[in-house]
Nucleic acid binder design. Structure first.
Lengths: 187, 187
DNA sequence: CCGTTGATGTCAGTCACTGACATAGGAGGA
DNA sequence: TCCTCCTATGTCAGTGACTGACATCAACGG
């Protein structure tokens, strides 16, 4: 028999989501989460760098996904086409992992808390930075790479927002495509 | 005679910059800053919402500047032209307030610290949100407004980065214009 | 059977931040 | 002139996020 129940991390993840829904993020302490998961606070911080990170601990690192997508993009593709493909790829991964309702619930928690928004923005910036680097390896220099990466994040966010808004029945990738078209129309 | 030395806020601002340069942001406590400014830690937190905020406490709220610029943009301007004008306006304000060397020093501190990057990203997001709202009041709806706002921030960041990089002698507004041209070329 | 490893517990400590209340100069009115 | 309110600050105690150091002990490999 094991010394401890297995999957401490998974239990903490579940406990955190429950508690955030019950009492709100601010009123939930790291100790609360740990207690409900049957571990100590110290263990919580061994698994998650900080309290916010528990909301960003998906199995997928989006920045790796987009970097890979850009690396394997078509030879003849323009920088914008590359980042759009990356945005679609990232969207596909997200749609695989959660339903729109789950995504909406998580988004509501994040939007209600500036500290969490900051973390979300940092993740987006990481995605942008990864895109920029991947473009550089395909021979796209600045400022083109930087601007293209920004555009990729822009369509991703815009599409994602529309998807979770519930105003449409389109799938997430379809919302991304819609945003790409809208960006096209803008110029 | 006054009960306290005047301009506590200014003294804290100066003390903070000094200490960050001397010991680094992480190794400087809020109490250190307060002590050097001749006040108590409690007073520090009365003037600044948190420790990071002391690095973002410029006299200018960039989001108001861009909102105003968009509000008074030319009637016939396209959404993109509006946000570009706003980016130029914001850049002009910044260039008024600090030299490139000052901006570079501050940028170095921020780039060295993820927590500070998060805060910077939040400020950029506020600028984007303000742009989006101002565009909405000019009749530009989503997703166009959202995407245009993203583009505005993109050229702002790209131009700003180039300006502080020291690789050019162009002024900040000129760097913004360069970024705008580069974005144009991208499509 | 024994030494090592890895995930956890325990504990003490630092620091960011907050709420409640006290203090005293200065401004304005009676 | 005196009284009163206002405001910026001080004081103090408390909470909660996070960290470092060290202990524990099942499991695993030899």
């Amino acid at each position: 028999m094991a010394r401890w129940e297995p999957d401490a991390r998974g239990r903490m993840l579940a406990a955190a989501l429950d508690l955030f829904a019950e009492k709100g993020y601010d009123k939930t302490t790291a100790g609360d989460i740990a207690a409900r998961a049957g571990v100590t606070e110290r263990t919580f911080f061994r698994h998650f760098a900080d309290k916010r990170e528990v909301l960003f601990a998906g199995p997928t690192a989006l920045d790796e996904v987009v970097a890979e997508a850009i690396a394997k993009a078509d030879e003849a593709a323009s920088p914008l086409e590359m980042v759009f493909a990356a945005a679609r790829e990232g969207a596909a991964r997200i749609a695989e992992q959660r339903t729109r309702e789950q995504a909406a619930r998580r988004t509501r928690i994040v939007q209600a808390n500036p500290a969490l928004q900051e973390r979300e923005l940092l993740k987006m910036a990481a995605m942008r930075s990864a895109s920029q680097k991947a473009l550089a390896e395909r021979g796209v220099g600045d400022p083109a790479a930087s601007l293209a990466a920004h555009s990729g994040v822009a369509v991703f966010q815009s599409g994602f927002d529309r998807w979770v808004s519930g105003e449409t029945d389109l799938s997430l990738p379809e919302c991304i495509d819609e945003a790409i078209v809208a960006l096209h129309d803008l110029t």
